[in-house]
Simulated assay, not measured.
Amino acid sequence: MKLSRISRVGTAVAVGALALTLTACGSDDPVGDTAGSDGSASPAAAESDLSGELNGAGSSAQGAAMDAWRAGFQSANPDVTVNYDPVGSGGGRTNFIKGGTAFAGSDAALADDELTDAATRCSDSDVIEIPVYVSPIAVVFNLDGVDNLNLDAATIGKIFDGKITKWNDKAIADQNTDAKLPDLAITPVHRSDESGTTENFTEYLKGAGADGWPYDPSGDFPIEGGQSAKGTSGIIQTVEGGQGTISYADSSQAGDLGTVSIKVGDEYVAHNPEGASAIVDASPRVEGRGDADFALEIDRTSTDPSTYPLVLASYDIACTTYEDRATADLVKGFLTYVVSEEGQQAAASAAGSAPISDEFRAEAQKAIDAISAKS
């Protein structure tokens, strides 16, 4: 799979786009102006026959991208409402499998047992999983006088495992000889909800952290107790509100917090979309899944400093077959816009994500075009 590393101006979408409005518990980020830079309508604006309501839920990391996609849809499809509840990846997958939503956003692909249940929910048809939002995960911290730290995966793992408890610990100091590190307690903050960001983070720690992380990857943080917060916005607010705090979150939400450059090979690499794109480029698809399933095996052990292996590939999950034509058409239109050059550029501008390549877009569009109704 290839992802574009070059930002490009979007082109019009061949199918009608649809207006995206968020529920009351939607993204924290405001929706941008849909007009072009010269005041003209967005190139997405076109006559649309779509109407109705489409419901999705899941990844909070996709929040800024969802807002950007809303802005692209709004002027084109005034008769469509798309609701997206950022309840977290685990909640999104559960809601989708139970039939509560037509699509889900998830920072992790479906597990094997979830895939079986999802296929049943999809009228025994194939499940679509497309990584529509690819972004670095940033290790963020709040420490007066320190804006950046260099840390290897083993040290990060020991911090979150409670084995390194002070900011001036030798393991941190040896990698940051120029930093003024205080004799201050470290307060790790983890997600309280099941989260694809947590799953990607713990997968990285397990894969790259040697003996620094003894736990298996999981969407639920494996250590009980400690400080926690729900959703990406909750994590950022908690880290901002404390001194000596550290956590992990989608890099688009890092703001003014300090961030960690992780060790890749012999160098330390700051979070960046190009590195996220590069590591996903090198990652194969999970074997044994359907043609519409683009779940990836991310290489967490890369030693190539042009890559950033602490990355999430956030999926939109849908069915190839729906019970009714109206839902099928809305999902098809929505996903077509999301993977389009215009939709991907909108997300990149709003959230710093890595746009997918033309080659992958063509593959994904074949799966989207196959969406149909049972009757």
Rank of each mutant, 00 (worst) to 15 (best):
Ile156Arg: 04
Ile156Ser: 04
Ile156Phe: 12
Gly157Phe: 05
Gly157Glu: 08
Lys158Thr: 13
Lys158Leu: 14
Ile159Glu: 01
Ile159Tyr: 04
Ile159Leu: 07
Phe160Arg: 05
Asp161Arg: 10
Gly162Glu: 06
Gly162Phe: 02
Gly162Tyr: 05
Gly162Arg: 04
Lys163Glu: 13
Ile164His: 01
Ile164Tyr: 01
Thr165Gly: 01
Lys166Glu: 00
Asn168Cys: 07
Asn168His: 09
Asn168Ser: 07
Asp169Ser: 12
Asp169His: 11
Asp169Tyr: 11
Asp169Val: 08
Asp169Gln: 09
Lys170Trp: 03
Lys170Pro: 00
Lys170Ile: 02
Ala171Lys: 12
Ile172Tyr: 00
Ile172Glu: 00
Ala173Lys: 07
Ala173Trp: 05
Ala173Glu: 04
Ala173Pro: 00
Asp174Pro: 02
Asp174Thr: 06
Gln175Lys: 14
Gln175Leu: 13
Gln175Tyr: 08
Asn176Arg: 04
Asn176Gly: 02
Thr177Lys: 10
Asp178Cys: 03
Ala179Pro: 00
Ala179Glu: 02
Lys180Pro: 00
Leu181Ile: 05
Leu181Gln: 01
Pro182Ala: 07
Leu184Pro: 00
Leu184Ser: 08
Ala185Lys: 14
Ala185Ser: 12
Ala185Thr: 15
Ile186His: 05
Thr187Gly: 12
Thr187Asp: 14
Pro188Phe: 13
Pro188Lys: 10
Val189Met: 08
Val189Leu: 07
His190Phe: 15
His190Ile: 11
His190Met: 12
Arg191Asp: 12
Arg191Met: 12
Ser192Cys: 10
Ser192Thr: 13
Asp193Trp: 12
Glu194Gln: 15
Glu194Asp: 15
Ser195Gln: 13
Gly196Lys: 14
Gly196His: 15
Gly196Ala: 14
Thr198Cys: 10
